[in-house]
Design a protein around this nucleic acid. Structure first.
Lengths: 148, 148
DNA sequence: TTGCGGATTAGACTCATTCTAACTGATTAG
DNA sequence: CTAATCAGTTAGAATGAGTCTAATCCGCAA
């Protein structure tokens, strides 16, 4: 279910929006709340559906707008796999994505700095990269059984 | 311009197609020729346009079909960046892609085995990945001036 | 109170890709 | 030598994620 934003998350949202000259609106709060409530890399449609439960008048275009704004503010990241619908991820730490072939689910994979560094090192001189996207595609065992 | 396939490339194509139970057709040869002629990661439309110069009756659907077949045979790789049109790449060696922000051009970046290995090592146990996609996004200096 | 500007809305539009149904042409069966 | 078969090809229709547009809304400043 969708809980309200914690004070801390709310401040985070407000700060990021205002810093990039954007306004805090109820729609943006609702969409952000949805993103934080379930960090399962939802598509725009999923965000839309979930947010409507809380704000029935919300339009799809607004969800697109809000998410675009958040990406612009650096509040969330877009995640693309092949040509499937874009998904959104509020995890800002550098990480890779693992796309489960069977479930379609996307998992965050922690990306240690030294691996990131070794990746950057393969770029020939003159190539200056701002963004690196790493995505794995395969099967993941159900991880319910917390390792024993 | 589009040269004919070398004998070697032609055999490569035939072998791969037949091995996966596919037929060698003039359309498939034309599309494959286009892919090998300019290894610049063309989109379907670009392949279509180029192939039409050589085979005017060729239809877009066929280009989609041919490319899909090639991917199935392991003859070429799909390359996706964000949600732009899919591009196709006949380089089968493991490599990453660098997408130039300014020109839109895609460059192959060699991927040394040890980097690949360190990447695989970040997957938690239970995660089994068949495909790893790595794409950089940024700016590349014009590489005309061979380093001095 | 009025006006302004950014945000929101519904719906039209775009465009890459997929689907469909008809056609082609090579190969096999009678 | 036909007919049947079947993968491949074709044109065009359909799909669907995402974008655009024009109208409306709403908070704030004059």
């Amino acid at each position: 279910m969708i809980r309200n934003l914690t004070e801390q998350d709310k401040e985070h949202l407000q700060e990021a929006l205002i810093k990039s000259g954007q306004k805090v609106t109820p729609q943006r709060e609702a969409v952000f709340t949805v993103l934080l409530a379930e960090r399962d890399h939802p598509t725009v449609d999923e965000v839309f559906t979930r947010a409507r439960e809380v704000m029935p008048g919300l339009s799809l275009a607004t969800v697109y707008n809000c998410l675009e704004t958040f990406v612009g503010c650096g509040l969330v990241r877009q995640v693309n796999h092949e040509r499937e619908s874009t998904r959104y991820c509020p995890n800002l730490a550098p990480h890779a994505h693992f796309r489960d072939k069977d479930t379609g689910r996307v998992h965050d994979i922690e990306l240690p700095p030294e691996v990131l560094k070794s990746l950057r090192s393969i770029l020939p001189p003159g190539f200056d990269s701002e963004v690196i996207e790493i995505s794995f595609h395969g099967r993941a065992q159900a991880k319910d059984t917390h390792s024993n």
